[in-house]
Design a protein around this nucleic acid. Sequence first.
RNA 1: GGGGAUUUAGCUCAGUUGGCUAGAGCGUACGAUUCACAUUCGUAAGGUCACAGGUUCAAGCCCUGUAAUCCCCACCA
Length: 905
Amino acid sequence: MKFSSSYEPGEYESEIYAAWEASGIFNPAVPTIPIDNDGDGIDDRSKTNTYSIVMPPPNANGNLHIGHGLTVALEDSLTRYYRLRGKSTWYIPGADHAGFETWVVYERELEKHGHTRFEYDRDELYSRVWNFVAEQRGNMELQLRALGASCAWDDLTFTLDENVIDRVYTTFEKMWNDGLVYRGEKLVNYCPKHQTAFADIEVEHQDEKGTLWDIEYRLAENTDLDAVIVSTTRPETLFGDTAVAVNPADPRYKELIGKYVELPLTDRKIPIIADEHADPEFGTGVVKITPAHDFDDFEVGNRHNLERIQVISEDGHMVNVPEKYFGLTTSDCRKEVLKDLKEQGLLKDEKKIVHSVAHCYKCGTILEPMLKEQWFIDVEKLASVAISHLEANEIKFYPENKQKVLINYLKGLKDWNISRQIPWGIAIPMFRKVDVSATDEPDWIFDRRTNLKEIEKAGVKYVRDEDTFDTWFSSSHWPIVCTNWTAENNNPYYPLNVMETGADILFAWVARMIMMGIYVTGEVPFKAVYLHGLVLDAEGKKMSKSKGNVINPMDLVAKYGSDAFRLGILRGRSAGMNQAFSENSVIAGRNLTNKLWNISRLIQSIIDEEFEDNTIEGLPEAAAEDERPNPVKTGVRDATRNGIISNSYTTNNMGEDWICREINNCLEQVEKSMRGYRFAEAVETLYQTIWDKYADWFIESQKIFKNTSLLKKTLETLLIALHPFAPFVTEAIWQNLSWTDGFIATANWPAKLKYDPISAENFENIRIIVSEVRATLQALPGTNNAKYPLLYDNDSLVAENELLIKTLTKAPTINSLNGSPRGLRLALANHEVYLDVSESVVNNYKEALTEKILAVGRELDALNARMMNPNYVEKAPAHLVKETTDQIKEKESLISRLKQQLEIV
RNA sequence: GGGGAUUUAGCUCAGUUGGCUAGAGCGUACGAUUCACAUUCGUAAGGUCACAGGUUCAAGCCCUGUAAUCCCCACCA
């Protein structure tokens, strides 16, 4: 006996994964480079059936978290399903240099050792981080294997691989030539701690309590008013004020437009301008304008040609301010300014308010709007082309509504800042002219030689821009670089069949992949997008380190097995929804794997018994166990795909026909669910079929009538169907069964089973009878352990299945009454089955019987009411009306029988 | 301000062109048993499908409105 009494995932998982990997079955069957074997000049691969999917690359030096666990469960189920369906599947793994994330980790590391980034130059830092990542790398790859990800490891793409950088530079050059890249001085969100700018999308806004101060700005000339009051939450920025604005339609200040006010604490005079930005309803209706430190004011400044005075430096200290305040931090400066304003009587009021404040998503530092020269992508064209492809429904979205959400986002998209002031990333391939005398040469040139700090072209010297690309700029090329798309080859793996990723990066990543995919290849990069929501803790709360409710997927894998984790995390989950997750669902998954294991164990023992019987009768002995090729042990497998081995089978009784029907339904349901990306539904269907139908009814009935060919066939079918979701246990069983061959991972998806539908339907009656016997036994008062003989009268179905019914109900005996009823008649409309109990027991059951009659009566009333409605009879489909009529007959017959019973008592 | 979603059993969720006498897992209660599996088997309880209208022979599902919860984007001097 090779099957132990329970499934121990730890004994099989790593061995099985190693065997899969070594055998090469995870590599696509169709080459990923062009071929033309038939010599017709057309790439043969474009004629084949491919399925491609790329992994959103996990951080190269990190560990997988629960979201990765979900991603793998989803993507690998798809991959394995389509592999079984005969497609050449290519699941491409990746690793992310995770620019900013990794940089933050490394910078902390530097700090720990008493260093700062400013002690090193860019190239030095880059190679230091590279080594740091190299040392840490590999954990997450092992974890992906533990989760069963059937990806093509040879094709793993790292976001800093040469081909990635090459492709990114090619695109950037094209954009530069197309005029989609420009260098501009703009306000950007800037983290003073990390000293880098961010894209709008990386900024986290939080509502916070703050103070709104009213400050008096005195008029510099004589008018009706002596002064105006402005309100601000950031008094320290007043040194950067270059105007105050009023709304042109505001009658209160009409006369003041064009006049000047004295800027407090300075000797500057600034103009009063008219701009729509000033809201007459807000505060006094007068607003100070600080173009260098506020996004709205920046716009106002552009409209009125105002000077931009930067008063906060990149490391968060005051500059370009009166001596007294110079060099202070912004918060110290604020205190000083408020104190001084108060002394001069210019601070008029202060109010507590709640306003939203921009924070660094990594360190939480308040972001400073900072005036900087950066590289920007003009997104207008890219976005509008993307919108037209989206509106043509070239990409199917799961959930559907995200398509609209994405279009809405693209419509309002602003130019994209792609410059980052951190060394860990892909260098921006732009060089600035240093020789100012070379007036004919452009200020900036594109050049790929970013390994050099300085280059010379046509005798002119240029120095490299020190900035790196926003990681989303390079990762927007992900489907292109992972599939090795080129303009020359007609790559059958591009576009991807599906892009599966988190709904939270729809804008940051998916939107950009679509824009870039179309820009580079002319085609959308994937045919479908499946977005998963957040995995929340058991209480529905977001997981976070600070809350201490983080679930580590690897812990669950170690405890219950990889399959249990996958089944558990898929359960009850649907596209785009944030959903709770608890260990319980993993336990349910573990129980299923164990159930399946034990089903297989039983079936194998039945096969073994038959085999022994046959050998006794002198049939030729099968190959000894040891001679059977075991790919898990040898790491080698037959190159041919497996067929289903047990193709010859027949059904011999109703239970067998019934299970064939149920398995067919299950297969159909799974196929349908997978087409619609309804993973939870597929898992649910398999769970029900394997447990409630196969084990509880079919296997139980097979304890009486053994049909080994059908047992083999049905077990294989269910194993294969479950394989995409529970790859390890199904493979472990497959390898342990005596008659299977090769890997289940490359088996063929099962065909529908043949069966007799009438016979299958009859088995439902048996199930109804058995269930009624069990329920009645439970309901009989005071008869907990009692077993009663079964009696029946004039019932051919029961007569033919005496043994089966007796076994399933655990009745001591079952006999025909031959026309003289006794005992308790069961509540069955079409069958006469009795429990052989004494009159006193029946008497005790009277109450339950009455209740039952009432219940059936209520159902009957509802049905009758339906039929009384002439509109129903007239308008409802005929088959429904007939169904109702039949049900009425059945209920009536049941009631009359139960009433008879009651009368007898 | 703009956009998107959710609300079904104690909990987590299914319920796909309306046919439902509303399902599952977990949990609960009662019972069983050593025979593939106690990671088991059997039985049961538990729901005015958020609320109010409407359309329809028929509404959990479609329409209108209301409430609660949540997310994203923009803005908040």
